[in-house]
Structure formats: structure tokens, C-alpha cells
Design a protein around this nucleic acid. Structure first.
Lengths: 143, 143
DNA sequence: CTATGTGCAAAATGTTTGCAGACGA
DNA sequence: TCGTCTGCAAACATTTTGCACATAG
């Protein structure tokens, strides 16, 4: 995996640095869809000198070479996902967690949109909102 | 339409003010999905003393009573839509415009997600990205 | 050795908040 | 009249930028 990032970076003319590897490795080892600050905080113990700006700059590069996708789920900050295959996300309105939704075929839906709009489509993002299983247990009275 | 806003506001215990009516009327008369600053700027000629904070505060109320929906299309700011029926949006990556996609049935797709996830779903947002018809004409060589 | 990357701090951007005076009900 | 709303400015949070030093290739 790490060697893949290395190759991808070099191919596009970007240098391979410990920070970039650390950020990508961290992101691809979590399912939590962290935002920049969370990534920064979680890497602090290992890279105490790394700055938040580096996280942002690195994310921009990783997005550019297609190694991460950027999520914007109606929050005030962006989240990042190393799982780049296009898949829907669902956010718990109670605890704020964001989960992947895998193995769903939106094919028909996407095709309909593609044929009904005059846009030249290049991508899509599907966001669902609700209450996650854990939060459902904790409060039987969802306000 | 305006009388509807008036009623909705009163029912929920909010006061009816010229600013709130102006903002809602402006929003429901455009298809451009403006952000707060655009709304503010466009209302300046008519309400020169209205502040940006009022736009934000009003949007929060209108969202709460279900008269507008808030869009977050991977941009740095939020957009607002007075067409509250749930429908997909598509953003032109070239000029930045955001259009509605009407008359699309995502039913099957939504049902699949609802049954495959353990979330208690309450809503969803679908965003598509591409190049709009106008921009396609202007540059035959989309990079 | 050279060009790019990092880390820091400052700036920019979008949104929220606190409060005194204004105004809808 | 009374409680809410407005407008202003300051506060806030997130992201971006500029620059001196460090480092990958």
C-alpha cells in the first residue's frame, strides 16, 4: 500500500516525504472519515512537529492524484476518505459519525440522471442522514 | 406564497419581519441556489441596511421550519434552496453554477440503502458534478 | 545542488455571537 | 408594552498563504 503512494507521488512529480506517507497511512487505516484537525491531532504523538498546514497541503495533493476523496456532509469542515471507490456515506445526526455504505448499486439512478441532464457528468456524491444503531439504543425517544 | 411564509413563521412563534419576507421571496424567485453573501448583495439595493448576520439568522429559521434546504456541494460556503422537495443537484465544475435535477426517481436506490444499513434514515442529499451545457460549448477541450 | 516541502505565524474566508436600540404582536 | 429581531462589530472556526529553513532526489 505504502509503496503505491510512493509510486503515485513520484509519477506526478511530487516528492515522497515522511509526513505524506504518515498522513496517507493513517487515513487508509481508519474508517472514521476524519477531518484535518483530527488527522493532525492523531498524528501528533508520532510526528510532534508536523503542522496543520501540512495536513491541508498533503490532502490537496492526495486528492489531486486520486488517493483520497473529500467529503462535505453539511458540516463546517471537510472530511477525508482513503477509500476512493465511489460509495455513499451516511451521517448520524446524533453522534456525528460518518459511515460508508458499500455494495449498493446506484447504477440505474445515475444512468437516469446522466440521460435527463445535459451536463457532462464526471462524478457524484450521495449523502444519507439518520440515526446510527448505537444512538438508537441509547435513546428510544429520538426527538 | 408570501402568505404561506407568514403563516409558517407565526405558527412556530417567529415574528414576521420585512427582512424575513424579503429573503424568502428572493430565494423562492431564483433558481440559482445562492449562498448567504449573494443573497445579501442582491438584497442590498432594496434593503440597504440589512446585515449579513440577518441573512444567516433568517436562513436558520427558514431551515428549521422547513421552508428552505441547505446545500453543501464541496464548496467553502453553504447554498440555499427554497425548493424543499428532495431532489438531486448538479454543480458545473467549470463555472460553478448549481442546477436542480427534477423528476428523477431514486426510489429503488434509497430503498436499497435503507434496507442495507442499520441506520434510521431521515433524509438524503445527492450531488452530481460535471460540465454544464454552456461550458461544454465554450471549450471543446475540457482539460 | 536545486527545487520542492515543511513548519510557523499571519491572513483570508465564512459563519456565529453579544448586545443596544428598533419593532412586530 | 414586552419579547423578539435587527444591525453592527467583534469573535470564532476552518482553511490558505508567505516565507525562511530543511530535505528529497
Amino acid at each position: 500500500m505504502a509503496i503505491c503512494v510512493t509510486t503515485m507521488l513520484r509519477e506526478r512529480g511530487f516528492k515522497v516525504t515522511p509526513q505524506r506517507l504518515a498522513i496517507y497511512n493513517y487515513l487508509s487505516s481508519t474508517k472514521a472519515h476524519p477531518n484535518a484537525e483530527t488527522i493532525f491531532n492523531d498524528l501528533q504523538p508520532v510526528y510532534p512537529t508536523m503542522s496543520l498546514a501540512t495536513v491541508y497541503k498533503t490532502m490537496e495533493i492526495l486528492r489531486e492524484i486520486g488517493l483520497v476523496q473529500v467529503l462535505n456532509i453539511g458540516e463546517d469542515s471537510f472530511r477525508y476518505d482513503a477509500f476512493t471507490e465511489n460509495h455513499p456515506h451516511v451521517r448520524c445526526m446524533s453522534c456525528g459519525r460518518v459511515d460508508d455504505i458499500d455494495d449498493i448499486k446506484a447504477g440505474k439512478f445515475v444512468d437516469d440522471v446522466a440521460s435527463s441532464t445535459n451536463y457532462q457528468l464526471t462524478g457524484q456524491q450521495f449523502y444519507f442522514f439518520g440515526v446510527c444503531p448505537e444512538c438508537q439504543k441509547q435513546r428510544k425517544n429520538p426527538s
